[in-house]
Computed example of a mutant assay.
Amino acid sequence: MEKKIFLVGYMGSGKTSVGAKLAKILKCDFLDLDVFIEEKEGMTVRELFKLKGEIYFRRAESKYLQEIIDQKEIKVISLGGGTPCYGNNMGRILSASNAKSVYLKASIPTLTKRLFEERINRPLIAHLDSEELLVEFIGKHLFERSPYYSQSEVTVLTDGKSLDDIISEILSVEQ
Rank of each mutant, 00 (worst) to 15 (best):
S13Y: 06
S13E: 11
S13I: 07
S13H: 02
G14H: 09
G14Y: 08
G14P: 09
G14M: 12
G14A: 06
G14F: 04
G14K: 09
K15T: 13
K15E: 12
K15D: 12
T16P: 14
T16Q: 08
T16K: 13
S17K: 12
S17L: 09
S17P: 10
V18A: 11
V18M: 13
G19E: 11
G19K: 05
G19M: 07
G19A: 04
G19I: 05
G19V: 07
A20S: 11
A20G: 00
A20Q: 15
A20I: 14
K21G: 00
K21V: 04
L22K: 05
L22Y: 05
A23W: 03
A23I: 10
A23P: 04
A23Y: 09
A23T: 12
K24E: 15
K24N: 15
K24T: 10
I25N: 15
I25C: 06
I25K: 15
L26S: 09
K27Q: 14
K27T: 12
K27Y: 02
K27A: 14
K27H: 12
K27E: 12
K27L: 06
C28H: 09
C28T: 15
C28G: 09
C28M: 15
C28F: 04
C28W: 11
D29H: 10
D29C: 05
D29P: 01
D29G: 11
D29M: 03
F30D: 02
L31N: 07
L31V: 15
D32K: 05
D32G: 10
D32M: 01
D32Y: 03
L33M: 06
L33D: 03
L33Q: 07
L33S: 09
L33Y: 03
L33H: 05
L33G: 03
D34V: 14
D34R: 13
D34E: 13
V35D: 12
V35W: 06
V35I: 11
V35P: 01
V35M: 02
F36P: 03
F36M: 02
F36Q: 05
F36Y: 15
I37H: 05
I37N: 03
I37R: 02
E38P: 07
E38L: 02
E38N: 08
E39K: 04
E39A: 06
E39W: 00
E39D: 08
E39Q: 07
E39N: 04
E39C: 00
K40P: 03
K40C: 10
K40I: 08
E41P: 11
E41Q: 15
E41N: 07
E41R: 00
G42M: 07
G42D: 02
G42A: 07
M43P: 00
M43T: 01
M43I: 02
T44S: 15
T44L: 07
V45H: 05
R46L: 00
R46C: 00
R46Y: 03
R46N: 08
R46M: 04
